[in-house]
Design a protein around this nucleic acid. Structure first.
Length: 462
RNA sequence: GGCGGCGUAGCCAAGUGGCAAGGCAGCGGCCUGCAAAGCCGCGAUACCCCGGUUCAAAUCCGGGCGCCGCCUCCA
């Protein structure tokens, strides 16, 4: 299978370091606010990659961090706290609040939990150790309680983002910091300000810079070289560039084999972001849409392409999902009780797999899925309960599982409603259409839609 | 200014040298007591524009136009 890596901007054959094992690290969120659709897109994308790799037999170790100490969190705590001494407690509260909110929406989207969710504040001593080593080795320097990484000491600085130091300097909107030798040097350790959380270090009280946490935590749990390091494309520079610089200076080895970055969600052409205030919160979208519909919407564009959000488009995807769900329910009704041996993978499944093997091409994979749905429907409408039909249904379930969709389940109706349906059957037998329609209306008002099929009447919620 | 990306039917979206996947919406038909679902059929003589290479280009090359991202925190 081929995977596009940002480092070199090319599709590369996917070969993990250890056969059969994939070490995957995805940059998580900073716990200072709720997640919007953009976050959903990123984590759904990586969830699908993980699920597909697992379906190919890889043992995937998935690590995703939480940033629980950072300027924005501190700022929020200052806004919410009444007195300065409340700040530390407030930070804990904020971090807990948004972590909970994170899981609430991501669980709804059926995103598999990571194997480990390390938090920055639990790894400060390791960060101090790494920063110390970088100073010792001459890659970093201390100035007034801050420690900076010296980008000039890392010759290949810029290799991920396709930039170089000469180009970066002139147009750089880099804030001037008198302490920095080079404006592009980035902070590894920040000296503490009053009432900010801080840790003791060889450079005095302070806290870690942002980039260092991912280097330390990924190496802690996955070793010096990751197979996949992922995140949103806005993290390419400076975050991931800086991670490479500090990690590779520290270990002398490549930091990650494949750098995977997802494209943005845009709102009428512009990036969805907190600062533009044009974001849609997942919590709110999930109040309006079925999480499976949202997931389908998010994977209907290739993960590297921009996704221009329009509420109307989600609505049309809701209809697409109906088609899939309807096929599953119908197949379950017809085949559920049957025992037929499944044949090897159908052509549709092979096409699906091929699409996924080509840099996780979910739109193409969905094409194969819908092709299968069409064939399955044809067979079901002919009442063919043979091995071929059974296999199609089996493959469909497999595809849905790989894409992370919970399988549509048949529900049960209350006995009263079941009785109504039986009464209607009687009425229909007697060609009492008025009564039949009356009962159908009653059920409709309760959100139940009846469908009279050659195999009998079935119902659906709508 | 530097680097990167996007522009395919009404909408969404694959395809990156050889007759333009798939989904939604729409139209006609079959099925149905009527419906719903499903099935069958119909849609780009053409892929932002202009040149070029080629037997052959949406796909390669050159030049434009429009939009966006990164270069500051950001999935």
């Amino acid at each position: 299978m081929k995977v596009f890596t940002t480092l070199g901007r090319e599709k590369k054959e996917f070969v993990p370091q250890e056969a059969g094992k994939v070490k995957m690290y995805v940059c998580g969120v900073t716990l200072y606010d709720e997640c919007h659709l953009g976050h959903g897109r990123a984590y759904v994308a990586f969830d699908v990659m993980r699920r597909f790799l697992e379906s190919r037999g890889y043992k995937v170790i998935y690590v995703q961090n939480f940033t629980d100490i950072d300027d924005k969190i501190i700022k929020k705590s200052q806004e919410e706290a009444k007195e300065e001494k409340e700040i530390p407690g407030k930070i804990k509260e904020i971090v807990a609040r948004y972590k909970e909110a994170y899981f609430r929406v991501m669980d709804q989207l059926n995103i598999k939990r990571a194997d480990i969710y390390p938090c920055a504040t639990d790894h400060v001593s390791c960060m101090i150790e790494m920063v110390g080593k970088l100073v010792e080795k001459g890659f970093a320097y201390e100035k007034g309680g801050d420690v900076f990484f010296s980008v000039e000491k890392f010759p290949s600085y810029g290799k991920l983002s396709g930039k170089n130091l000469e180009e970066l300097l002139p147009g750089a909107r880099v804030g001037k910091d008198e302490k920095k030798k080079n404006p592009l040097d980035f902070v590894l350790w920040k000296s503490a300000k009053p009432y900010e959380p801080s840790w003791d270090s060889p450079w005095g009280k302070g806290r870690p810079g942002w980039h260092i946490e991912c280097s330390v935590m990924s190496m802690e749990y996955l070793g010096e070289t990751l197979d996949i390091h992922g995140g949103g494309e806005d993290l390419i520079f400076p975050h991931h560039e800086n991670e490479i610089a500090q990690s590779e200076s520290y270990t002398g080895r490549p930091f990650a084999r494949y750098w995977i970055h997802n494209g943005f969600v845009k709102i009428s052409g512009e990036k969805m972001s907190k600062s533009l205030k044009n974001f849609f919160l997942l919590r709110e979208l999930l109040e309006e849409f079925d999480p499976r519909v949202l997931r389908l919407y998010l994977i209907s564009t290739h993960y590297r392409n921009p996704l221009d959000f329009q509420i109307e488009n989600i609505k049309s995807v809701a209809n697409s999902w109906q088609r899939i769900e309807e096929a599953c329910l119908k197949a379950e009704e017809m085949l559920g009780g049957e025992k037929v041996e499944k044949l090897p993978a159908t052509l549709y499944f092979k096409n699906f797999q091929q699409a996924m093997e080509d840099d996780f091409n979910t739109p193409r994979a969905l094409g194969a899925l819908f092709d299968l749905v069409g064939e399955l429907n044809r067979r079901l409408s002919r009442g063919e309960k043979d091995a071929e039909t059974f296999s199609l249904y089996g493959d469909l379930k497999e595809m849905l599982d790989i894409l992370g969709f919970p399988l549509p389940q048949r529900e049960h109706l209350s006995p009263e409603l079941e009785k109504l349906i039986q009464q209607r059957e009687e009425a229909r037998k007697n060609k009492n259409w008025a009564e039949a329609d009356r009962i159908r209306e009653i059920l409709k008002s309760k959100g139940i839609l009846l469908k009279d099929t050659p195999q009998g009447t079935v119902w659906r919620r709508f």
